[in-house]
Design a protein around this nucleic acid. Structure first.
Length: 185
DNA sequence: CTTAGGATCGCCT
DNA sequence: GGCGATCCTAAGC
């Protein structure tokens, strides 16, 4: 019996619920161990200044995927939350590799499992996520999302790599995981 | 172990 | 023209 995630909830609720869920893209992926929530009235969010060409997907229906380019080099994966038009989402920051590990090693060019998906840019490279996935629904191929069957013990703290709203504790992690992008304090 | 700098480009001011 | 929801490498302690 699988536990489905309600993406119409607040992004912080969804971010917490996603900890322990299994994400696969074309059968490659693993357990989500780190997320961050972003919301409309949130100076750190891409949607804070309103809808633009880049963030249009964030204002679309919940349960869809928002992919953006980071620093001109990397891709970052988000799940849209709330209702269409709101502009909230969850950044997927780290995954514990479970399926297709050798494929991920090839795509990433590293052997160490802890370096495959521990970071938003890294996991997109490992799962081969690009702008082409932007706007696709999580309930249809190539995506597969299986909610955590049990309540996972999680920790929370401030988000990483932002310069605004740096004290908001909207970063969530699986307690004790070795696959976090950075440890929690 | 921590820190510093460069890569690289679409979007916003 | 500036600046990231980042990552990698190299150098310093």
């Amino acid at each position: 019996m699988t536990f489905t995630i309600d993406f119409s909830a607040d992004s912080a609720i969804v971010a917490r619920q996603l900890i322990g869920a299994v994400l696969l893209v074309d059968g490659v992926g693993g357990r989500i161990v780190e997320t961050e929530a972003y919301d409309r009235e949130d100076p750190a969010s891409h949607t804070f200044a309103g809808e633009t060409a880049r963030n249009a997907t964030m204002f679309g229906p919940p349960g869809h995927v928002y992919v953006y380019r980071s620093y001109g080099i990397h891709w970052c994966l988000n799940f849209v939350c709330r209702e269409a038009g709101h502009g909230a989402g969850v950044l997927i920051r780290a995954i514990e590799p479970l399926q297709g590990i050798d494929v991920m090693r090839e795509r990433r060019g590293v052997v160490d499992e802890r370096l495959l998906c521990s970071g938003p840019g890294r996991l997109c490279q490992a799962l081969a996520i690009t702008r082409e996935h932007d706007g696709l629904g999580l309930n249809e191929p190539p995506f597969e999302l299986i909610g955590a069957g049990e309540r996972m013990r999680s920790v929370a703290g401030p988000r990483i790599g932002i310069s605004k709203a740096i004290d908001v504790p909207w970063r969530f992690g699986l307690a004790g995981s070795r696959f976090l992008s950075r440890p929690f304090r």
